[in-house]
């Protein structure tokens, strides 16, 4: 790698290469499970239609009345699509913890080398943070691409008479998980802020444990609870004051964004202090 690359880029690239195997596994799992869903669910549906038609000598209208249609949305709500998303989310959550602890445990202690690099230790922190986000966006992109591949597969298998006219984009907009994960709405940035805040608080908690051992776990849990209380407090203001008109929805969003930014910045400063002054190999 060229020396001109900034340390952050170099470390991010290095962390990415360490994540790649795990990420490719998650991507492969997503695509494979989705493909099974795109083929298995419509085929099973068509089997049911054919069986019903033959056994009951039913007309198309009678079949439709009894079994209804299959939409792409129905397919996306199946476990074949939802389970890989859940696995991806939990996988990356696990990796967010593992990305730190793997440097300390096992046969070798790579934490020594990383902490002795002639770069700011926060570079290390940011490279790990960026890589988790790259992982998140890669999995989201994989899921989106998979849906675009899946739609023609499903529509090719299901007879057009029994295929709901609900389109791909409409199916995405109806899906509770896609609404959160995909950039479909303008307020998607809120989801990103929530994600970044959670990750920063989690990293701070890990650094507290790495700095103060068992005491650090207690500090970390305390810190996470305070952070959570700060962010959730405005949501309960109306109940506390028994006044539904105390804060408008748009005001609440602004307050929440400001509070999450405050929590994120305080997490960054706490992490910087810990990684520079308190961390122990």
């Amino acid at each position: 790698m060229k020396k001109s690359l900034s340390p952050l880029l170099k470390l991010t690239n290095f962390e990415l290469s360490r994540l790649s195997k795990f990420l490719f596994t998650l991507m492969g799992l997503t695509v494979l499970a989705n493909l099974v869903g795109y083929i298995y669910i419509p085929m099973k549906f068509m089997d049911k239609i054919n069986k019903f038609t033959i056994e009951s000598s039913a007309t198309t209208e009678e079949v439709l009345n009894s079994l209804g249609t299959l939409s792409f949305y129905d397919v996306t709500m199946s476990l074949w699509i939802v389970a890989p998303i859940a696995i991806g989310v939990s996988g990356l959550l696990f990796y967010s913890i593992f990305i730190w602890y793997r440097e300390w445990f096992g046969k070798n202690t790579f934490a020594y080398r990383l902490l002795m690099l002639p770069v700011s230790r926060m570079t290390l922190f940011f490279s790990k943070f960026i890589v988790i986000f790259i992982g998140i966006f890669t999995l989201i992109s994989t899921q989106i691409v998979s849906l675009f591949i899946g739609y023609p597969i499903v529509s090719a298998i299901v007879d057009s008479t029994y295929f709901s006219s609900l389109g791909l984009i409409e199916s995405m907009y109806m899906h509770p998980l896609f609404l959160i994960l995909f950039p479909l709405e303008p307020n998607y940035f809120l989801i990103l802020i929530v994600g970044a805040t959670v990750l920063l608080v989690m990293f701070t908690l890990i650094l507290m444990e790495r700095s103060f051992a068992s005491k650090g776990i207690l500090f970390g849990i305390g810190y996470a609870m305070v952070a959570l209380a700060i962010v959730l407090f405005p949501l309960f203001l109306s109940d506390i004051f028994n006044n539904n008109y105390l804060i408008y929805g748009s005001e609440l969003v602004i307050i929440e964004v400001v509070l999450m930014i405050i929590v994120s910045i305080s997490s960054l400063f706490t992490s910087r202090y810990l990684i520079n002054n308190k961390i122990t190999v």
Partner: peptide
Amino acid sequence: YNKVAFIPDVAIML
């Protein structure tokens, strides 16, 4: 860290 090198008694590369 460019001026001081530490060689610990554990392997420290991946």
